[in-house]
Structures are given as structure tokens and as C-alpha cells.
């Protein structure tokens, strides 16, 4: 199975390379270091969010509220920055993951302590958080001219040819890869979702692991809120509407099992890059941006069909309680 999983990652890597090569054949500019760096910058937020979502999926849950969390946290830090432009970017960088973690922990508590199916919980908080963005902003937009220079500049700072935003994604990937392989807590995510009953006997608190996963996913979504608002230099109620589907798609394409316990960091990164390449290549190939949603929908559908072939475990485990 381990071999099988690695095979799968290699396969996806080859497909991603082929896709990249296919586009490059027609548009050599697509694979210059400059455009590849742009591609990474453009996909960084998706990569980060998909890593957080993977943790949640590993524990047999799903977090549909990430995009709403992102929008709410992004708006809150944008408002903070607008009110106190002199404070610089540091409070924003510290606060955004904290706010996000709180919002994620709320999901986590409901799943952990009240044992409500995660899809119900996050479907509910998705709409609560999204509505809260409007309440917080009064429906107004925060535009780039209302953002401080450091707020906008920080993630655009170049280091060794990559933006800080890209480096954040790179660091996130490395941290996740190490933590999921080498830390006991990381390993316990796999155990908790792989067999919740056995995990309980082994002294692993499955509900607690779900709580941790939701909190981590929330913290990442919160940080991504700042990253998103800064990168697109605007905050409003509908920011990143529906982006949770892209995030889940990246995981599914990357081979994370919706039934828990299976998934690799490499797969998730490739899944996110795959979607990023498609998104960036479409305008080049001359396809109207209106096609983007249909194409990613098609890719997701094909990916889940391919995934389902190898997945013999019972479907819809995600809707069942991950409890013994």
C-alpha cells in the first residue's frame, strides 16, 4: 500500500509534468523561471489551504468552512490595518492565524464534544462566517489605498527569486511533511482516521485529533485570509467564494482518501499545482476564463472516478461518526 501510494504520487507527478510540457510546447514562455515563480506565487495559498484540509480529511472529517474563515479573518485584519496603519504588518501576521484557529476550533469543538457530523457543522459555520464578514465590514470594501504599505508589501518581498508568499508555502510543505512523518501527533492523525475504534484502544483520542485538525485547518485559513487580501489588494464579503471546493479538489486529485487515514503531502502539493497550472494555462491557450470552473469541475470529477477505482473502503464514511 505504501508502495502503491508512492506510485500514485509519481504518476500524478508525471501527469503534472506532461501538462506543463504540453502547454510549454505551444507557449515556451510558460516555463521560464519567471513564470514558474509566478505560478508558485499564484498557487501558494491553495497549497497551504489544501495541507490544512488534508489533516481534517485524514481524521475522517471535512472542513467546508475554510473559504468563509479566510474571508472573515482577511476582512478583520484588513480592518485592523485600516484603523491602525502605523502598527505595520507584524500584528496582522500574528493575529490572522490566531483568529482563524479560533474559528476552526469552534468547528472542532462541535465535532469533538457534540459529535455532530463535520459536514453539517462546517456547512453551518460556512454561512455564519460568511455572513459575519458583512456584519464586520458593514458591506463595505477595503481597497488597496486603505491598506498600509507593509500590509501589501510583505508577501511581495522577493527572497532568492521567490516571493515571501511562495516561501511561506514552501516552508508549510516542509513543516507538514516532517510533522506527518516524524511527530507522534502527526502519525496519530493517520491512526485516528484509519481506524477510529483501534485508535481509541491504543490510547489515541480520536475526537481530540479531529479538534486539532480543525484548529490547524482554521489557523491556516486565517493566515491565508491575510495572504489573499494582501495579494489581491482588496477585502469584501464575497472574497474566495466557493474556494473550499478548489481546496478539497486539490486533496482529492492528490489522492487523499475522503474516508480518512490515507494521504501524502507530496500528493496534495501536486494536486494543488495541477489545478494551478490549468488555471494559469487557460488564458494562454485562449480559453475564456468563464470555462475555468467547468474545466476544474471536469478534472475533479475524473480524479474522483480514478480514485474510487482503487478505494475499496466503504463510501461516505465521512458522514458517519468517526467514533468506535
Amino acid at each position: 500500500m505504501r508502495l502503491h501510494k508512492i506510485d500514485r504520487d509519481v504518476g500524478l507527478f508525471v501527469i503534472t509534468l506532461l501538462l506543463l510540457g504540453g502547454v510549454a510546447l505551444k507557449f515556451p514562455d510558460f516555463i521560464t523561471p519567471r513564470s514558474l515563480a509566478d505560478l508558485l506565487d499564484d498557487t501558494a495559498i491553495l497549497v497551504l489551504l489544501a495541507l490544512g484540509q488534508m489533516l481534517v480529511l485524514l481524521t475522517r472529517a471535512v472542513d467546508l468552512s475554510v473559504a468563509a474563515n479566510l474571508a472573515l479573518t482577511g476582512m478583520l485584519v484588513a480592518l485592523l490595518n485600516q484603523a491602525h496603519p502605523g502598527w505595520g504588518v507584524l500584528p496582522v501576521v500574528i493575529l490572522s492565524p490566531l483568529i482563524g484557529a479560533l474559528l476552526g476550533a469552534f468547528n472542532g469543538v462541535l465535532v469533538w464534544k457534540l459529535k455532530i457530523p463535520s459536514i453539517v457543522v462546517t456547512l453551518g459555520t460556512l454561512s455564519v462566517y460568511r455572513g459575519a464578514v458583512y456584519v464586520a465590514s458593514g458591506g463595505a470594501w477595503v481597497n488597496s489605498n486603505q491598506m498600509s504599505e507593509s500590509f501589501l508589501g510583505f508577501i511581495r518581498t522577493q527572497m532568492l527569486g521567490l516571493t515571501v508568499l511562495s516561501w511561506l508555502a514552501v516552508v508549510g510543505v516542509i513543516l507538514f511533511a516532517l510533522a506527518l512523518r516524524l511527530s507522534v501527533t502527526g502519525r496519530n492523525f493517520y491512526a485516528a482516521g484509519g481506524n477510529p475504534g483501534a485508535a481509541t484502544y491504543a490510547g489515541i483520542d480520536v475526537g481530540w485529533m479531529q479538534f486539532l485538525a480543525f484548529t490547524a485547518s482554521g489557523a491556516i485559513a486565517g493566515l491565508a485570509g491575510y495572504l489573499w487580501v494582501s495579494r489581491f489588494a482588496v477585502a469584501y464579503t464575497d472574497v474566495a467564494q466557493g474556494f473550499e471546493l478548489q481546496v478539497i479538489a486539490a486533496c482529492v486529485i492528490g489522492g487523499v482518501s475522503i474516508s480518512g487515514g490515507v494521504g501524502t503531502v507530496a500528493g496534495v502539493v501536486l494536486g494543488a499545482l495541477f489545478l494551478g497550472i490549468i488555471k494559469n494555462a487557460l488564458p494562454l491557450v485562449g480559453v475564456s476564463p468563464f470555462w475555468q470552473m467547468a474545466i476544474s469541475g471536469l478534472v475533479i470529477t475524473i480524479a474522483v472516478i480514478l480514485n474510487a477505482r482503487g478505494d475499496h473502503s466503504s463510501p461516505r464514511r465521512i458522514l458517519e461518526e468517526a467514533r468506535p
Partner: peptide
């Protein structure tokens, strides 16, 4: 044999 939640998340975008 695609789990319904995944299948319909995909077709929703489609």
C-alpha cells in the same frame, strides 16, 4: 462507486 459527497462536489462545479 464514488462517495456521493465527493462526486457531487465535483459535478457541482461541473
Amino acid at each position: 462507486k464514488v462517495p456521493a459527497i465527493v462526486a457531487t462536489i465535483g459535478t457541482m462545479s461541473l
